[in-house]
Computed example of a mutant assay.
Amino acid sequence: MEKQPSDMGKYGAGNTSGSFALTAHKTCPARGGAWQGMGSSSLKRLLRRGAQSGSAALQQEEPRATLQGRRHLSILHSGPSERTMLLLTQVVWFAALCAVVLGCPTIVSRSQWGARPPKSRVPLKTPVPLLIIHHTDGKSCSSQAACSRVVKGIQNDHMDRNRWADIGYNFLVGEDGRVYEGRGWTTRGAHAPSMNKISLGVSFMGSYTGRTPSPAALNAARGLIQCAISRGYLRRDYTLKGHRNVNPTDCPGNALYRLITKWPHFKA
C-alpha cells in the first residue's frame, strides 16, 4: 500500500449495437484527434466523401452494363442508388458513433509526455461512482511541451519524495486544453486517501485559489468526464467532489472549488 500524508500540499492531495459499435471502438482514434468536437462541417465533408465513393462505384458498374441494362442507368443517375444510400448511412452512423460513443478530448499518453515506468500498479474496478477534482498547486502551463515538463516534475516528486509507485492522479489537465494521462482509467490512483479505490482523480495543473483555469482547460476536463462515462469507466449516476470534500485540504483552490460546485453531479 502506498502511504499518503493527510495533506499532500504541493502536487498532491494538495441502442447502438452490433458491428457499428464495435467498428467505432476499434477504428475511431482513442485519444481525440480528427473526431474530437465534430461539427456540421466535418459531417458534411464525410457525407461528400461518401457520395463520391458511391458515384465512383456507380461509374464502375456502368461500363459493364449490357445494352439492355443501359436503359435503367438513367434511373440510377436520376437519384441516389441503393449502394450510395447505404454508404451515406454508414458514414453518418460512423461519424455519430465516433463523436458520441467516444467523444473524448485530446489525451497525451504517458509515452508522449515521457513518463517513468511505475514501480507497481493496483487495478481499479470500473465503472467508479466518484470523480474527484484537484489542483496541483504548482506551475500552470499553456503548451504541450511546457505541460509535459510539469507532469514529469510532478511524477518525480510523487515517486521520489512521496515514495509512491507512480504519479498520484489518474489524469491531469493543462491550460493548453489537453489532458495528460497519469495512472489512466484502470489503475488505482493515490490522490485521495480512503477514496482511491472508488474514484478517478483529475487534477488541474496550476494553483487556482485566486483564479479559475482557462476555458480550454475547463472544456477539456468536462470532455474527459463525458469520455469516462461513454467508455464505461465512470458511472452515469456518478458523484463529483472537490478534494476538500473528502480530505482535510484546501485543494482544489477556492476559485476552482466555487466553480465546480455549479457543475452537474456535484455533491459536497
Rank of each mutant, 00 (worst) to 15 (best):
V151M: 14
R178W: 10
G206W: 03
G210N: 13
P193I: 02
T136P: 01
V202F: 11
R188W: 05
S203H: 04
P117D: 13
H191W: 06
R121S: 13
P118F: 14
H158Y: 13
H191R: 13
D157N: 11
G206I: 02
R235Q: 10
G114F: 04
P123E: 02
L234A: 00
P129F: 05
S148Y: 02
L131G: 00
W113E: 00
G138T: 14
G174H: 07
T212F: 08
H134P: 04
H158K: 11
G184I: 04
D166A: 15
G114P: 03
L172V: 06
R110F: 06
L224A: 05
S199I: 07
G210R: 07
Q226N: 12
D137W: 09
F171I: 01
L172G: 03
A146K: 10
D237I: 01
S230H: 12
G174S: 06
G114A: 06
S203F: 03
R235D: 05
V122S: 15
A190L: 09
T209H: 10
G114S: 05
G189V: 08
P129E: 10
R116P: 12
V173T: 04
A217E: 07
K152R: 15
G177Y: 03
V150Y: 06
E175G: 15
R235M: 09
Q112A: 04
P215E: 13
R183A: 06
H134I: 00
G174L: 11
L234N: 01
R110L: 05
I229Q: 09
R222L: 08
